[in-house]
Each structure stands twice: as structure tokens, then as C-alpha cells.
Design a protein around this nucleic acid. Structure first.
Lengths: 231, 231
DNA sequence: ACCTGAACACCGTTCAAGT
DNA sequence: ACCTGAACACCGTTCAAGT
């Protein structure tokens, strides 16, 4: 069989075909496997067909790689937002897109929940949110703090969901069944409210909670605008 | 010098003085050191004056230990809430207390942000929040989903702040300075909103954001009550 | 200039052996 | 019944050596 370089591009001895982009794309492939495949430097080396430590020629450390990967996924979120929406629609679309991407790449969503990438696509997200809160009627310091509220809340929401996806199946099952097990068995005298709502508590879905949390952000902005207009 | 057993209670050869409570208290001492001292099984062994693996006689694994430690800290939060507050006051006090405790034991606050302890003090917190949203005027499924919104949002807020405290000093500094560095230097044409608000963005404090996020939860509940009354 | 691979300094957890 | 300590199967990262 003759050599066919095109189909052996990732063979171990192909020279210096390692680029930041190739490393980011390999990272996304691993991240997409969720809890089935740990996102480690050694696993990344396998995926690239290179020595695990080769990535240190292109990224200072794993943290810097993750920030770059996260910024790439923010690009996917931005591309999913349609044109022409009003401020509420843009925040809802940003929330839905962020959730979808965080659940697709849980290790990225989880790790980045309390970070700032300081990279181009994050700038675009910030620009979008500030535009929305200003269109809603906030300005100056009020717009700034409400932007931060929205931005960090969205990161927190999707980060929580993503982190949960990364737990071992047994831990996840134990947490998920709490509302239909432990919380149904609490002492009725000591915990009357829980007892009274036990059925409804077990029926709440993650999707309902997410929607209510996003609407809470919007309500809070509207209420703040009304309060400031009234004063 | 004569033996004085009372003062050598934690000596290496004192027999079986290891109890779940002693392990939880040692865990809290390590957790209180924040990013200066990693919360590892080996470090816990040192703190207890025992072999690192001794804790596996009392807890199935590190996760179960952390759940127990977390429930202990929830007790501290509950003890900090005064009697006689109305529903808004109780949510504000719960938020403030949770933040304080999460910043005191960051590794606990960070790890538990997407978990359910399913332990006694968590039941008390759930009872408190459900009582608050019902006093606000919500019932049944509406009360259930709004309880979940409040509970998970508070966990997310304090978890984000706690996680940030655990990063290495240089990573934390880079994230904190983003608003006064990278975000001040963005292209004014491409990012007019960021440019317009750059001063205000750099001046927002974590405390302001936290307060706005807590008030947003309260606003959202009030708005939902109004909407349901109107319908 | 970039990649390799041995090595270092860590992790959580298991299990046979001690007392 | 509980604790010990060696051992296992991992981590991220460094650095001298290769090409």
C-alpha cells in the first residue's frame, strides 16, 4: 500500500502540524464526551497523536488553554443569536444559547463559571448585555452593575448545570432523587412547608427552574427601571 | 515530665479518638485557610495526627465527608439569622450569612455550589426559603419552582465568590484587573457600549453585585405575585 | 523551533497487615 | 474495631535530550 499523507495527517511522526487551533478543536472533541472522558493533558495528547507535553509549546498552561477553548465556545453561543430581537429577546437567546453550549461542553461550562476569559468573544457578549440593559432604560453605574448581575448570573446558571453533568452517575442520581426520596420522608412536625409541598417539589424540572431564573433577571431589570423613573 | 493525656489527645498513638465530628472540625480548620492550604486527604491526616487513610473508617469517600462538612457550615448560617424578620428580611439574612460562611470556608462553598447535601441543616434552609416564598404570596407549584430558583441562585452566587478565592493569586489578579485593563483598551468602534461604560464597569464592586443579585430574587418573586394576582 | 519522554511532586483510594 | 503504610492508578508540569 502506497503512502497517503493526506489520510495520515495525525500520525505520530508528521512533524509540526500542531497549532493552537488544532489543540482547541481536539479539546472540544474531548469536552463533548462529558463525564465519559476526563479532560486531561494526557488524554489531549492521545487525541492529537502527540506527546502530552507538546501542548506546552502553544499554551502557557492548562488554564490558558481552557480560557481559549471557552472563548471559542462563546463564539458558538453568539452565532446562535438571531438578529433583530428586542432587549428581552436578546437576553433570552443568550441564556438559551449559553445553556446549550455549556451542556454540550460541560467541562468548559463548569470551569469557566467563575472566570473571565478576557478574549474577543467575551467582549462581544459583554457588548450585547450592556446594550440590552441600556435599551431597557438603565444608564451609567446602574447599567454597569446590572450588566454584571446578568453576566455573572448566566455564567452561574449554566455552570451549575454543567458541573452537575460531570459528576459520576451515582452521585448525580443521588442528588436528583433527593426530592422524591429524602425530602418526601422529612418529619412533618419539624418541616411543615416541605411536607406540604413535597409533591410539587419533586415535579419541578431543571428547564422550569432555568426559565424562571432567566425571567427573574428580566423582571429585576424592569423593576429597577420603574423604580428609577418613579424617583 | 509526667504524662499528661489531656494535652496530648491528638498524639499519633492515642488510640481510637478519631470520630466523625473530630474529622469534620479538622476539615473546617483546613478549609478556613483558603487557598493557602489545599484540602486534601493527606493534609487532613496531618491535621488529625493520624494516617491519611484513617478517615475512610468514618466516611465512605471524600465526597461524603464534604457533604457532612457542608451541612455543618449550613448550621452556622442558620444560627446567624435573627428571629422575627419578614420574608424579605429572611432571604436577605440567609444570603448574607451564606456569603459570609462560603468566604470563610471557600473550598466548601465552591464544591457544594451544585450539590444537594440531603442532610438536616439543608432541610432547615429549604423550610426557611419555602416559608418565605409562601409568605410572599406564592403557593403550590409556583412556590416550589420559586423556592428552587432562590435556593440554587444563592448557592450559585456564593459558590462563584468562593471558587474565585481558591484560584492562585496570579489568576485571581488577572481576572480582577480585567475591567481596569483589557476592557479599557477594547476597540471603540467595535465595542461602543463597553467603551462608553468603561469607567463605571471598573468601579463596580463584588458587594454591589451581590446585593443587586439578591434584590433581583426578591423583585422577581414580588413581580410574579403581582402578575398572578392580576390574572 | 518544536516535539519527546523521563521525571517530579502531587492526587484519592484500596487492601493486606498490624494492634 | 480501628489504624497503618505500602501500593495503585492517576494528575499537571518541568527540563534535558533529541530532531
Amino acid at each position: 500500500m502506497p503512502k497517503s499523507p493526506a489520510t495520515t495527517a495525525r500520525s505520530k511522526r508528521a512533524g509540526s502540524q500542531l497549532t493552537p487551533d488544532a489543540i482547541i478543536e481536539a479539546s472540544l472533541r474531548i469536552a463533548a464526551r462529558g463525564s465519559e472522558d476526563a479532560f486531561t493533558v494526557r488524554r489531549l495528547g492521545e487525541e492529537l497523536g502527540a506527546d502530552p507535553t507538546a501542548i506546552y509549546r502553544h499554551f502557557r498552561d492548562k488554564d490558558e488553554l481552557l480560557l481559549s477553548v471557552a472563548d471559542r465556545t462563546l463564539g458558538e453561543v453568539l452565532d446562535s443569536i438571531p438578529e433583530g430581537l428586542d432587549w428581552k429577546g436578546r437576553i433570552r437567546a443568550l441564556a438559551a444559547g449559553s445553556l446549550e453550549v455549556a451542556l454540550r461542553y460541560p467541562v468548559v461550562g463548569s470551569t469557566m463559571a467563575s472566570r473571565t476569559t478576557r478574549r474577543p468573544n467575551e467582549f462581544r457578549v459583554v457588548e450585547l448585555i450592556i446594550g440590552a440593559v441600556m435599551e431597557a432604560g438603565l444608564q451609567g453605574a446602574e447599567a454597569a452593575v446590572h450588566y454584571r448581575m446578568v453576566g455573572e448570573s448566566l455564567l452561574a446558571f449554566v455552570g451549575q448545570r454543567a458541573a452537575h453533568l460531570l459528576f459520576d452517575a451515582d452521585i448525580r442520581a443521588a442528588d436528583e432523587s433527593a426530592w422524591s426520596r429524602e425530602y418526601r420522608l422529612v418529619d412533618a412536625q419539624a418541616f411543615p412547608n416541605i411536607t406540604h409541598l413535597s409533591t410539587e417539589l419533586a415535579e419541578v424540572t431543571d428547564e422550569q427552574i432555568f426559565q424562571v431564573r432567566v425571567e427573574a433577571l428580566i423582571s429585576a431589570i424592569e423593576k429597577r427601571v420603574e423604580t428609577l423613573r418613579g424617583a
